[in-house]
């Protein structure tokens, strides 16, 4: 029971139901907290929808929702995730991210300071990704009916290449490239959520990935497939691709980089880093003879500087992912039944 006398709260300190009413409060919210971070002609119109110049290029379209607790974590926050998540989904088709929409679902009582922080980092992330946030919506739900702040973004990207990038294009003999070490995002969030302290800094890898991918395409690498390693991590992504593409992958665990703090945290909790989420990592399937050139291109970008080959598409008929571990023994990778749970002792 709260026995403290509630202090009067200045009008704009927290989100109130009225902020979602469409009236004066909504206007103020947009004017003071949202528009300043997204300066472009479309959003400035304040219209119900944005009219975008359509080109002859193919378009890709994607959407994602962000419901993370905590809103701020080492190496990022929900605002950055909401931009990079959709930007990266578009990038996985080899598209140049162009336009985003953003829907905010705010919980009554959210501090305006928190909202301002999130919007500011969304603005910066959008600028860093070269995308325009052109339309959006804001709703407020009653206290207790949301975790402070949910964000949905949808995005449109344009395709400037003639490749068909996807699991169906994967061919036996392709090499599997990974764009860096794995497990940082998931463990950074878990460490923060559970107040666990580990040795060494553990920062989320959350970052936009379109630049290195567009560079691969510019360098005329025949990219067969791309996949970002978000929920379910590397293992889940590979299993899905093997099944969708009806191919067999052979991967060497020793070639998969995992930094010491992630390894330590996973060991301690009994989690498998192969299944931990990333927000700035992807795998690329490329023809073997182009792999070296692809790695050289990726090496030019800090976010993909530590790219390497982790395996290959095998000739086997059964769609599955075979992992060779450090002892030279083999096992199959599979989906997890549900969430990864820490072990007991």
């Amino acid at each position: 029971m709260n026995t403290e006398c509630p202090l009067p709260v200045a009008e704009d300190e927290t989100v109130r139901l009225g902020h979602g009413s469409g009236g004066e409060l909504t206007q103020r919210l947009l004017r003071d907290y949202i528009y300043p971070h997204f300066d472009n002609p479309w959003i400035a119109q304040g219209h119900d929808s944005a009219t975008l110049p359509l080109t002859n290029e193919q378009l890709v379209f994607s959407t994602d929702s962000f419901v993370i607790t905590p809103l701020f974590f080492p190496g990022g926050d929900i605002g950055e995730l909401a931009i990079y998540g959709t930007v990266n989904d578009l990038a996985m088709s080899g598209a140049r991210p162009r336009y985003l929409s953003c829907s905010l679902i705010l919980e009554e009582g959210l501090s305006m300071q928190t909202l301002a922080r999130v919007m500011s980092s969304m603005g910066k992330a959008a600028a860093a990704s070269g995308v325009q946030l052109v339309t959006g919506d804001t709703k407020v739900v009653e206290k207790g009916k949301g975790d402070g702040l949910y964000i949905n973004t949808a995005g449109i990207g344009s395709v400037e290449h003639g490749l068909s990038i996807g699991a169906h294009s994967i061919l036996p003999g392709d090499l599997i490239l990974i764009s860096g070490d794995i497990g940082r995002h998931g463990m950074a969030v878990m460490a923060k959520r559970e107040s666990l302290e580990f040795e060494g800094p553990l920062l989320s890898d959350c970052a936009p990935l379109h630049e290195p991918i567009l560079a691969l395409l510019d360098a005329e690498i025949s990219v067969h497939c791309l996949r970002d390693l978000t929920r379910g991590g590397l293992a889940t992504a590979l299993v899905e691709l093997a099944e969708t593409g009806s191919q067999q992958f052979y991967v060497r665990e020793d070639d998969i980089a995992i930094c010491e703090p992630v390894l330590g945290a996973c060991e301690m909790l009994g989690l498998d880093p192969l299944y931990v989420a990333n927000e700035g990592r992807f795998v690329a399937f490329v023809p073997a003879q182009q792999a070296e050139r692809a790695l050289a291109v990726l090496a030019q970008f800090s976010v993909t500087a530590n790219s390497r080959v982790i395996g290959a598409v095998a000739d086997g008929r059964t769609p599955q992912v075979i992992l060779q571990n450090s002892l030279g023994c083999e096992r199959l990778l599979d989906r997890l039944a549900g969430e990864q749970l820490p072990r007991i002792c």
């Binding site: 083999e330 599979d334 039944a337």
Partner: peptide, 30 residues
């Protein structure tokens, strides 16, 4: 199966059945 266990060994991180299921070898996979 882990998502629909009949008994505890299929659930736990330390259960033998969960271990066998999760880390099937190539030979038993099929």
């Amino acid at each position: 199966r882990p998502e629909q266990p009949l008994g505890a060994p299929m659930v736990s991180n330390e259960g033998a059945c969960a271990a066998y299921y999760r880390y099937r070898k190539r030979s038993t996979a099929n």
